[in-house]
Design a protein around this nucleic acid. Structure first.
Lengths: 338, 338
DNA sequence: GTGAAAGCGCTAACAA
DNA sequence: TTGTTAGCGCTTTCAC
């Protein structure tokens, strides 16, 4: 019942604690083979599990990585968590996940909480409400403690740490250019909040594609959404009622689904009457009918970059950008072959 | 830079370590107000964060709760994680999440890993491959260590710990009865693996509803799926090609989406030509067109029950069952008013 | 090749 | 009301 310790193992195998510790930690150069085997046998016999805490206390390394996401339930973040868990598991690290729920207060509290748990590293996806003023607290934290930070998925350039993001400009460009090549010239946008960098960048990419194709940018085609389904429903309704044969670039898949819904209700066919391109490539985008053509961020690469930068332990400010790709499915009609 | 400790605080405020410890832990009865204030000031000044690890090592309680889920990315599990995180956060516990990926080996390895991290409690959602033979190892683990286990979401009655599950029999009954009341008599089923308890129970509920309504059970209407989308596509295709105006009870929403997809491809309308009821109420089921009528497990209640049972620390075997509800949307036609 | 011993930062008797 | 002190289980230096 009572947990057995390294002391018990040492006593049972008739060696010192030191030897047991060495054997368990692979520092086996200075230990005879017989001793090693005997100790290992005893460990197995008693099903000995070293106390991680005590080891961490002494060695100053918990092998815990804290990660702050706005919302675990969001499939985009849960995908990231899964990949990161996989990557770090292989390196012997455990993830301490904290869901800050888009709330800034909770977010800062969660950081403090993680830090007090002696994490070695910290991956931060800040809520969109994260502002310049919070930089200071983050900086103070990382100064007072011995934790390397990395910012992920949000272009925040005023923190003294690496920032890893998707190339949203390129994503916006890819989506728009695809629609143009399919013969669409009048392309509506449903953006996210026009204050957040991802949305700003996607729009920049949109404009770039138009420009390259000599299409004039028309502000009246741009509708500001908030990356949520509900609001996008209203916007889609406005667009489709005005313009039954339109093409829409939704700045995330969720809002693209709203276009599907409204089109269905109006008896319009996606991929024939109306064309939609999304952004994210949610799991569902391949299940829906017709499949949603969308921009896929290279989440795997993004996560690998996070791990790489983190272990560099170089907290100078820099931005790493990962290229997205276009996933072609059936939600866009080809009006060049009409 | 170097982390400051309770010792530093004691020295700076001119009191003993004990007093600081007491003040920080709210055992303030035996400390004068002035001392308390002084110490607190010093703590704030130096931005002191107590070392959680050292405290845990001494007090034998880490306030970590381990949780094993088959797959973080699955929205059903990520929903559970979010709710559990919320519940336990309020009680001052942090979740150590482990994704076992449906693989039994990895699952058992993860349990051992969590245990070595000195978790206080452990919530287990076993992979479906979890078998009687693993009971022993689980039992051995919980014997050698001081961790209370709870099994969640899987009816495994041979472990010596509480089991919290949704009432799948009732769920199956609710879905089937609803279809019957809408005038459907010939109801196809796409089940999960007929070896897992959830699937067995849902089918039991299905039969119960038929019986109550004097409809004969017809084995040829039952198709065994595996809770995945891809396979369900084939099954849906078989069913719909044979029977264009049918009604289907899919044992989860994902497989219901497959019915949508196939119906769309065949030019059949869900909610008019073909009727579907799902199970789970995924986020997406309200976004799809038409909305999917489905069975919603009361995840909140399920999670609350988990917390409650866990803290009871009574590891006697018992099963707690939570009632689901039917969410009516537009995927079933009313053939009584034809 | 092996072991004694110091100490990581904290808690909580016990003493004063 | 406050301080002294003995550990928690482990790592690691240094001596044998």
């Amino acid at each position: 019942m009572s947990k057995i310790t390294i002391k018990d193992i040492a006593r049972e195998s008739g060696v010192s604690i030191t030897s047991v510790s060495f054997i368990l930690n692979g520092k086996t150069d200075s230990v005879s083979k017989e001793t090693k085997e005997r100790v290992l046998d005893v460990c197995k016999k008693y099903n000995y599990q070293p106390n991680y805490l005590a080891a961490a206390l002494k060695s100053k390394s918990t092998h815990f990585i804290g990660i702050l996401v706005p919302d675990i339930e969001n499939s985009y973040y849960s995908r990231i968590l899964k990949i990161l868990e996989d990557i770090f598991d292989k390196k012997g690290y455990s993830l301490l996940i904290s869901s800050s729920g888009y709330d800034l207060e909770k977010f800062m509290g969660n950081i403090r909480n993680l830090v007090s748990k002696s994490i070695d590293y910290c991956i931060v996806i800040p809520p969109s409400s994260f502002q310049e003023q919070n930089k200071e607290e983050l900086a103070r934290l990382s100064e007072h403690i011995n934790v390397s930070f990395v910012i992920f998925d949000r272009k925040i350039n005023y923190c003294n740490c690496p920032v890893i993001v998707n190339d949203d400009i390129q994503g916006g460009y890819l989506a728009t250019n695809y629609l143009i090549k399919k013969g669409h010239k009048k392309i509506y946008c449903i953006t996210g909040s026009r204050l957040v960098s991802s949305s700003i960048d996607r729009l920049t990419g949109y404009k770039k594609a138009l420009e390259e194709n000599n299409i004039k940018y028309d502000e009246s085609l741009i509708y500001e959404g908030d990356y949520k389904y509900a609001d996008a429903l209203d916007i889609a309704s406005k667009i489709l009622k005005k313009d039954k044969n339109c093409s829409v670039f939704a700045f995330n898949d969720l809002m693209a689904y709203a276009v599907y819904k409204v089109a269905n209700e109006l008896g319009l066919k996606i991929g024939k009457d109306v064309s939609v391109v999304g952004f994210d490539d949610n799991n569902f985008s391949n299940l829906i009918y017709p499949g949603l053509t969308t921009i896929r961020q290279n989440v795997q690469k993004l996560c690998e970059a996070v791990a790489e930068e983190l272990f560099l332990e170089d907290c100078s400010a820099r931005t790493i950008t990962i290229e997205p790709e276009l996933i072609e499915r059936g939600s866009v009609n080809d009006s060049t072959i009409k």
